[in-house]
């Protein structure tokens, strides 16, 4: 599904990613762990097409297509979803209008007719229950005045609405208490199928107790330095990054 080859990327002239290689198949969950500044968030930003970053070398194939040549909105419509570490507040833009624009943009891309108001609200209701997102929140402006936990649940709600084939969860566990973490993780697990894949970016083992990865990659200084099964996260928890890399 996703094939990253020798990916180098920089921001403001500073190289952050220094040759990433990663292959992800449908049905798999990959965890990417690593110390601060290793390039975890940069990798997710580059895959999503954030214009602040420049790809200097390498290639990324997504479902057989050249991902890096697509505009960010086309990547999204092709099925790439990024759950933001810091979801953006958009005062004055209602969740409903925002989600309707997003869902219908994807449907149009797939050659499907736009959902009418009734169908759309029905879909919102069905998906909202998945992450126990309050009706009041979907009636408000996008993320405005949401608590940290509500913002993250709102990300997973949007993921449920858009049914992506590749979801990248960028530190979705940061700022969550244990109950919110469980709700978010259960939502992600319910959305997981044999046809889609998930990349979980996290600092801590804790999230991986709930979202169990098939592979764990350790990212350090812009490169994947180790890959293993889920036990690698446990080893990391025990030894720390410094101990693991010796």
């Amino acid at each position: 599904m996703l094939d990253i080859k020798n990916l180098h990327a920089s921001i403001a002239g500073k190289e952050i990613l220094k040759g990433i290689n990663l292959h992800i198949n449908a049905g798999e969950t990959h965890a990417i762990m690593g110390p601060n500044g290793a390039g975890k968030s940069t990798l997710s930003a580059v895959l999503a097409g954030n214009p602040a970053y420049t790809v200097t070398e390498g290639e990324v194939t997504f479902n057989g297509k050249d991902l890096l040549s697509m505009a960010p909105e086309v990547r999204a419509r092709e099925g790439l979803f990024l759950s933001f570490q810091y979801p953006v507040e958009i005062p004055g833009v209602s969740m409903t209008n925002f989600m309707r624009a997003a869902v219908n943009a994807k449907r149009e891309h797939q050659g499907m007719p736009a959902l009418n108001a009734g169908e759309f609200l029905k879909l919102m209701r069905a998906k909202r229950s998945l992450v126990e997102l309050d009706n009041k929140l979907t009636g408000r402006s996008v993320n405005e005045g949401f608590s940290g936990g509500e913002k993250k649940r709102n990300e997973i709600f949007q993921m449920a609405m858009l049914e992506p084939c590749l979801s990248i969860l960028d530190e979705t566990d940061s700022g969550l208490d244990i109950d919110a973490l469980r709700i978010v993780a259960e939502g992600v697990n319910k959305l997981h199928t044999e046809e889609n894949a998930t990349i979980v970016i996290t600092h801590y083992q804790r999230l991986l107790d709930y979202i169990v990865p098939d592979y764990v990659h350790i990212l350090a200084d812009g490169q994947i330095v180790r890959t293993g099964g889920k036990e690698l996260a446990l080893e990391l928890e025990e030894k720390g990054y410094a101990g693991l890399m010796q």
Binding site: G49, R77, I90, G92, A102, Q158
Partner: peptide, 22 residues
């Protein structure tokens, strides 16, 4: 905000329109 909306599949023109309406 513009990038956030694009990441959800919304074209930049449409995103700008929504932001200006707001």
């Amino acid at each position: 905000a513009l990038f956030y909306m694009q990441q959800r599949g919304i074209a930049p023109d449409e995103a700008r329109r929504l932001l200006l309406t707001a």
